[in-house]
Amino acid sequence: MTLSASPTSTAAPSAPVIEVRNVSKSYGEKVAVDDVSFAMPPDAILGLLGPNGAGKTSLIRMITTITAPDGGQILFRGAPLNGYHPTQIGYLPEERGLYKQMYVGEQLIYLAQLKGLTAAEAERRAREWLATFELEGQWKKKIDELSKGMQQQVQFIATVIHDPKLLILDEPFSGLDPVNANRMRAEILRLHASGTAVIFSTHRMEQVEELCEYIVLINHGRNILQGKVSDIRRQFVENRYRLTYHGESLPDALGQRYELLNPTVSTVDIQLQAGEEGNDLLRTLLDLGIQIQGFQELLPSLNEIFIKRVSVVG
């Protein structure tokens, strides 16, 4: 008797949900994606960043099998993408919409069935999800009759109803009011906590800082920066510290020793040169008898890094 291979043996369970290997894509003359590689980190929400027209959507369309790469490879749990994988992916495109003339329930069932669910299972989950968003009463309403916010929520349900292993959200919060945005954010985090891999594409940096621990920055089709958010920020430190102090004014000696920036009544930013240490600065401050209230290293915001990198490479 021979042992048949179990399904898990072909797809390595430890392999990243998505791995993009040297993927390129052109439309005619225009190169949309140029040799991009990255892998989904195991336990992080991945932020796919880049200015408009950088190639984010082109890349996402290849991951969702809507289009195929010209070169390179995309692996889903270690296996090249095939016709089965779309049922494992939930995709909320930036350009999104619903059938306006269909009823909410029927529409959710249809979209879930396209993802491989049976009609009965689709209906059960649709009702469950609508209850989560307090939309049970809308089952027999046409999409047209819903408010914009409700439509967005129905759209989100349609994206996650088949319990995808990978969730790709392209600007998911655009057009949402703060209450609904928070509710959706909570659901995204809940799904992520329960093991769903999430790719979050946006050019809104404050949202990235809230949600993502890992980012891939794309510009002109090229992957120009990637890694853990904390590492990247550290990588971009400019050796600058902010001092908050008490007292009349700072001694002149400090100004002669260091470059001082952005002075206010009680704070000043101090720029150190390469090789200088924050601890040495702190020691000097103490020696000068300054009344220190606060002392912290200034980390660049993702927005600053983004603008810096994009304008340098661009």
Binding site: T64, T65, I66, G83, P86, T87, I89, Y91, L92, P93, E95, R96, G97, L98, Y99, K100, L111, L114, K115, Q155, A158, T159
Partner: peptide, 16 residues
């Protein structure tokens, strides 16, 4: 209709 409603991208992420 599907194109102007922007539903088409959602659908073709499931259907060829």
């Amino acid at each position: 209709e599907e194109k102007t409603n922007r539903i088409v991208e959602v659908v073709i992420s499931s259907v060829r």
